[in-house]
């Protein structure tokens, strides 16, 4: 069954079509939810809400954009709405709450340290999860999901400059988190080589 056939099937109430469409998009939707909220139970809840909204609105899909884009935007909106409603540890994008405390110390003139060989998949996932929510939101939307700053600004109700600035801070923080893990990883690698 193609995506277009599955969409038509969903409109007609065909159970198999719902399942096909779910299987086509489940990983991307769930990954986005997981990376944005970190909590598996909340990610499941958000994914369910996203798919239910999708299936309720599927009759209004006109095909002006790719279905995955439509579905994805819908999911992002649901996540952002939940984050706003809960007002958890969100970093406001309209004020630079960060006064340098969150960011890594800059040691100019120190030895050349870089992350080559450190950024493996699991370490990176952990470091992303450890980012403050506001930084993480922009980082996930821009660097993982590929949204442009103007789209992020529109979705989050902030300026483009603010989105860029948050992304920079997110990357800076991520770098420091990864560098913290570097000595541990090197020890592990050393042990493994012995």
């Amino acid at each position: 069954m193609t995506e277009a056939q599955a969409i038509a099937g969903c409109v007609a109430g065909d159970p198999q079509a719902f399942e096909v469409l779910y299987n086509m998009h489940k990983r991307r939707v769930y990954s986005l939810c997981m990376r944005m909220v970190r909590d598996p139970a909340e990610a499941e809840d958000l994914s369910q809400e996203a798919f239910m909204q999708l299936f309720r609105k599927i009759g209004t899909f006109r095909g002006d954009s790719a279905f995955s884009t439509w579905m994805h935007r819908l999911t992002v909106n649901i996540i952002l709405m939940r984050i706003r409603k809960k007002g958890l540890d969100q970093v406001s994008l309209d004020q630079d709450r960060d006064d340098g405390q969150d960011l890594p110390p800059r040691e100019y003139g120190s030895e050349d340290i870089d992350l080559l060989g450190v950024v493996d998949r699991i370490t990176l996932e952990k470091a992303i999860a450890a980012l403050p929510r506001g930084y993480r939101t922009v980082f996930v939307l821009h660097d993982i999901e590929g949204y442009e700053h103007n789209e992020i600004a529109r979705m989050m109700g902030c300026s483009v400059g603010n989105s860029k600035s948050q992304l920079f801070k997110a990357r800076l923080k991520l770098r420091s988190l990864l560098l913290e893990k570097k000595p541990k990883l090197e020890k592990k690698q050393l042990k493994a080589s012995r």
């Binding site: 719902f18 489940k26 870089d114 992350l115 660097d143 770098r175 990864l178």
Partner: peptide, 28 residues
């Protein structure tokens, strides 16, 4: 600069996360 590129490359290697089976059951 190298670190920024390393992070970008790392992000490209991230894999989608598989949802639990019960998610579809709940949706259905």
């Amino acid at each position: 600069n190298r670190d920024m590129n390393a992070i970008r490359q790392g992000v490209e290697r991230l894999e989608p996360i598989e949802p639990p089976d019960r998610l579809w059951k709940s949706i259905r």
